[in-house]
């Protein structure tokens, strides 16, 4: 299984420790990641793709064309990158007129969109290409006794006819992935509510705090030891965002966050140092004790 590795700019610039653990864990599962030269921002879906559509589509099409030139499907680590690239890939494959228009823009570069590859989020690769059976065979230290709140995020599920990942109203895939680790998925309400990252970014900190606070309280009530995410922006919001929102909201608990591939790494025998936990901002001594107990 070889893919063109689209690491995305948020994760590679702000959260490189997640890139490190992702490359290590996916490699051990037989996923080969090719460093494709010349990728840019996907571009970011809310601020760029929805405001200057033609330029946004051309930038995404250029990224896809780089993978096409290598004959490889793209693997992403981010819900937002997956959203932008899948939307444009879908639109340009389906609409010849739009494809011609975008290729006319791309004629200024050495690239053309042909529509020959697919764009896959790493969670989709784990579910469909690697397979959860193979993932389960790699588990050396099941994370028993750990209750994990799965936050799937918005942009990986909607619209389902393009994203083809999970039910936007009742997401179950991440819970299945948590089960494989030997952990218990938390049963909490507000499961499909946004993390609030975009609201924070574009100026509505009050709304974002309310959103995040409501989600965290719901996770906490359900006995969650941690929250697991599959998107770096969601990660940042639950980590740094939680630290800041807790001060403003006066929360008296914390729900530490782990990128799913960090949890998988722990279950595969990685240490807390290997997964870069010391770089996280939201801490919980109870969580670390529980993890160390599970790791023996």
């Amino acid at each position: 299984m070889k893919y063109s590795f689209f690491k995305g700019c948020f994760l590679s610039v702000r959260l490189p420790h997640l890139e490190r653990v992702s490359v290590n864990v996916l490699g051990e599962l037989g996923v080969e990641l090719k460093e494709t030269r010349g990728f840019s921002c996907c571009p970011e879906p809310v601020g760029f793709l929805s405001t200057d559509k033609l330029t946004g589509m051309a930038i995404a099409a250029r990224n896809i064309s780089l993978a096409e030139e290598e004959g490889l499907d793209i693997l992403t680590l981010c819900n937002g990158c997956t959203y932008s690239l899948r939307h444009v890939n879908h639109a340009l494959k389906a609409d010849e007129e739009a494809r011609e228009k975008v290729n006319e823009v791309l004629s200024e570069t050495d690239h053309q969109f042909r529509g020959t590859v697919d764009v896959k989020h790493f969670a989709s690769v784990l579910m469909n290409d690697v397979g959860l059976d193979r993932v389960a065979r790699k588990i050396e230290k099941p994370l028993k006794g750990l209750t994990v709140a799965g936050h799937t995020g918005c942009h990986i599920v909607s619209p389902p006819e393009i994203m083809a990942f999970d039910d936007p109203f009742d997401p179950q895939v991440l819970d299945k992935m948590v089960n494989v680790l030997g952990s218990e998925p938390a049963d909490f309400d507000l499961k499909t509510l946004c993390c609030g990252w975009t609201l924070t970014n574009y100026g509505d900190k009050d709304g974002a705090d309310k959103l995040l606070g409501a989600k965290l309280e719901s996770m906490h009530r359900a006995g969650s030891d941690c929250v697991s995410v599959i998107c770096p922006q969601c990660f940042y919001q639950f980590d740094m965002g939680q630290l800041l929102a807790s001060r403003r909201l006066g929360l008296d608990f914390s729900v530490p966050v782990l990128f799913y591939l960090q949890l998988l790494g722990l279950a595969m025998g990685y240490s807390l140092e290997d997964i870069g936990l010391k770089r996280h901002r939201t801490k919980s001594s109870g969580f670390e004790e529980k993890i160390l107990e599970a790791l023996g």
Partner: peptide, 20 residues
């Protein structure tokens, strides 16, 4: 547009990255 949007768009076009 929101000023953050113009900053982000300019950054992407001039560096290839949304974040410095």
């Amino acid at each position: 547009a929101h000023p953050v949007i113009f900053g982000e768009v300019a950054n992407i076009v001039s560096t290839g990255f949304a974040f410095p």
